[in-house]
Every structure is written in structure tokens, then in C-alpha cells.
Amino acid sequence: MKVIAVDIDNVLNNFSDTLASSTFKYNDLYGLSREEFDHYLDMVKRNAFDESNFLTTKFSDFRYRIHEQCYRLAQAKSDGVQFMHWLKDNGWEVVICTKRNLRLTGESTKKWLQDNHIPYDYLFMALNKIVFCKLWNVPYLIDDDILNITHGERYGIKVYYPIMDKHDSAFSHTAKGFTRFEEIKQWIQE
């Protein structure tokens, strides 16, 4: 059985563009002052984190709520949808592997995948996708995370990533970047 893991955000959709271009209106339901709201929103848009010894903070709750809105608003990449159908039509087992907290966003994530006609066999949350792929014998990963791009091959995982500005930093890797999903087909058929 041919198996591949595919990320959602910034791979199958335009999450970062949606986050950058969306307007989020202040209201009392956030439980923040206007100043906190503006400061936290700036941090979320810059992908910054607050320093805390706690797993859940006012900022982490706010970040989740903004991201949840972007999960629903993000547009699927049409060539990504076509690629996912090509995978299924050619006998691939497709694992959607995301860092999203699926306990909180599992139903909305499934709905987004269904609404965008994205076929898959399994949906998993994994903070370390290399370890996930290694443990579950998934030899291929399509993901935009620099950690996975940099270290995947060392652990026997072939990583393919959509080329983005954040990948301009100088780091050594053997992963293959792509501008169109069509390019991946030749690499996974080798």
C-alpha cells in the first residue's frame, strides 16, 4: 500500500494569506481590553508567542480563536485538491496530518475538507510529523514546516514542501520544494 501524509495549513490552503489579509473586529467576547486585543492580534499575525509557564493563557486562547476563524476562511488550493484526487485515484492511502488541535477543531476541519471535496483516509493531529510518519511507516510527507523540511530525510521520510518566503532562510536539507502539486507526482513514482 502506498501511503502519504499531507498537511492542511499553507499546503492545501492559503492559511497565512488569510491570516494576514483578514480583519478581526474587537468585541467584549474576547475578554480582553482593546489594547490587549490589538497587541495580541499583532503577535498572532507575526506568529509570535508569549512567554509563560502555563499551557493555556489569555494569549493562547486568543490565538486559537483567531486561527479557528482562519481555518474556516482559508481557501483550498485548486491544484492541491486535484492532487489529492489523483492520489486516491491511483491507490494511495492519504493521511491528513495537521498541528491543529483536533479536540477543538476536529469537526470544523472535517467539514472544511468535505466542503472542499478533499478526499482522505485518516485525519491525525501530530506536533512532530517526522516521528508520526516514522512510527506509522508513512514514507512521504507534504508539509511547510521548516523542522520537517530540515530533518525528514535523516529519519527516512521524504519531505516535499510548497516554496514560501519563510523557506528563504539558509538551511541545509534534502527535501524537495514545489510550486505546483503536479511536480510531486514524478517524485513519488520513482
Rank of each mutant, 00 (worst) to 15 (best):
Y64W: 11
Y120Q: 03
E93W: 09
L135N: 15
V6D: 01
L104S: 09
D28K: 15
F54I: 09
C133M: 06
V3E: 13
E36A: 10
V6T: 05
F181Y: 04
E182A: 11
Q114G: 09
G152K: 05
R63S: 13
K88C: 02
D165V: 08
E68R: 13
V94H: 00
S16R: 04
A170C: 11
N137W: 10
L123D: 01
F181S: 02
L102D: 08
F132V: 06
Y160T: 01
R34N: 11
E36Y: 06
F59C: 12
P119W: 01
E51Y: 15
R63Q: 13
W136H: 15
V138M: 01
K176E: 06
V131W: 07
T98C: 02
P139F: 07
R46D: 03
R63F: 10
L73R: 15
F181L: 02
R46K: 11
S33A: 09
S52L: 08
S172V: 14
Y161W: 00
A48H: 13
F49W: 13
N10R: 06
M84L: 10
G91N: 13
R63T: 08
V3D: 12
F49T: 14
S60N: 10
L147R: 14
E68I: 01
D168P: 06
D50H: 10
F181W: 02
D165M: 06
R46G: 00
D121I: 04
M43P: 03
G91R: 07
P162G: 08
D121N: 15
Y40W: 01
E35W: 07
V138L: 04
L73V: 03
D9I: 03
D38E: 15
Q82H: 10
L29A: 14
K88H: 03
D28W: 10
H67Q: 11
K110V: 04
Q82K: 14
Q82N: 08
V44P: 01
A76E: 06
I142T: 04
D7W: 09
D79P: 02
R100Y: 05
D17S: 12
Q69G: 02
